[in-house]
Design a protein around this nucleic acid. Structure first.
Length: 186
DNA sequence: GCGGTGATAGAT
DNA sequence: TCTATCACCGCC
């Protein structure tokens, strides 16, 4: 929002995340992800997400059981689930509860960032690491903020990326993209 | 296409 | 302790 000469960001309340993972994945398109590093906000507009539905969804980490790693997904909505994948890249998710979460897969940079088209690239660009796991996403240094809702005519649903091991669940249309964006993964 | 990299979970 | 697995990326 523009107010005078300042551009302000309004953190979204955690209650924004208290809905089904599918609905949250859709609702997060157009919202902002902000990470404050050394007093400087790094901001991107969310353009690609994936819903992971819970223990019954074989592509979801919580399908392997409730463990120290997946514990945060069983906690209250609106917290970050961050993990290291392939020993190299971090991925950031928004918890909805009951073992479910939404993976943020791509951003459109609103401050100078490197490439943000891909879950590993965006965490690198924003500086998000394991230390942010379980962080509540309604306050600094890592939070969601109000952006502009994406019209349904610009939203496309596809299969999730990189979950071929999940059998029939690999085919579920749980990836959401803003198809106007030039910052989508792949 | 293929290799790098390390936390995790479950087996031994 | 060991080993298989992995929501990926960058270079060939």
């Amino acid at each position: 929002m523009r107010r005078g000469t300042f551009v302000t960001v309004t953190p979204l309340p955690r209650s924004f995340c208290a809905r089904s993972p599918e609905r949250l994945a859709r609702a997060l398109l157009g919202q902002l992800l902000v990470h404050v590093v050394r007093g400087r906000p790094r901001v991107g507009r969310i353009v690609e997400t994936e819903a992971y539905l819970g223990p019954h969804d074989l592509a979801c980490h919580s399908a392997k059981g409730r463990t120290p790693r997946t514990e945060v997904m069983f906690g209250p909505p609106g917290h970050a689930y961050v993990y290291l994948i392939y020993g190299l890249h971090h991925c950031v998710n928004v918890v909805t509860g009951d073992g479910a979460a939404v993976l943020v897969r791509a951003l459109e940079p609103l401050t100078p960032l490197g490439r943000t088209d891909g879950p590993g690239r965006l965490t690198r660009a924003l500086g998000i690491g394991l230390s942010r796991n379980a962080h509540p996403l309604d306050r600094a240094p890592l939070f969601l903020a109000e952006g502009v809702t994406v019209s349904s005519r610009h939203v496309e649903r596809t299969e999730r990326i990189g979950v071929d091991y999940a059998g029939e669940w690999a085919k579920a249309p749980l990836r959401f993209v803003d198809r106007r964006s030039k910052h989508l993964s792949r």
